[in-house]
């Protein structure tokens, strides 16, 4: 029982570590978010939308990373949303974890999505796709 549990947890841990924070392309119906949905202005070229919650360890580091990227790349806005106060959006976008980061293009289409703390280079890479470089 102990062994089975620990092996299962190790497998889950390895998969989580590998997948966590890696921006994935959004397949199927591409969602579009408006500034009304976000209750904030979209960035001129792209927007990084971060869903956070009160009991989220990596949210603070994610906020820092996204703020740094926003400063580096002109025309990009960073919008942080408290998941708990926007459960409507959380449900419609099927967000299960915090932080979840959505990369929106200039018109608000969700281009990429990462759950877990993303790496800075990955965010910059995903932004390249959003702004069409």
């Amino acid at each position: 029982m102990v062994l089975v549990t620990l092996v299962a947890a190790t497998l889950v841990g390895v998969v989580l570590r590998r997948r966590s924070g890696v921006p994935r392309e959004v397949r199927g119906d591409v969602e579009r978010l408006t500034s009304g949905d976000l209750e904030a202005d979209l960035g001129e070229r792209a927007t990084l939308v971060q869903f956070s919650s009160a009991f989220c360890q990596p949210c603070r580091a994610t906020r820092r990373i996204l703020a740094e990227v926003t400063e580096m790349v002109p025309g990009v806005a960073h919008v942080e949303i408290d998941a708990e106060s926007r459960l409507d959006l959380v449900r419609s976008l099927n967000i299960l974890r915090t932080p979840t980061v959505l990369v929106l293009d200039a018109s608000g289409h969700v281009v990429k999505r990462a759950s877990g703390q993303p790496r800075k280079v990955d965010v910059i890479g995903a932004l390249g796709l959003a702004v069409g470089e």
Partner: peptide, 10 residues
């Protein structure tokens, strides 16, 4: 446990 928060909340 932290991840449970949003899921419970949902």
């Amino acid at each position: 446990g932290c991840e449970m928060f949003l899921i419970i909340r949902r």
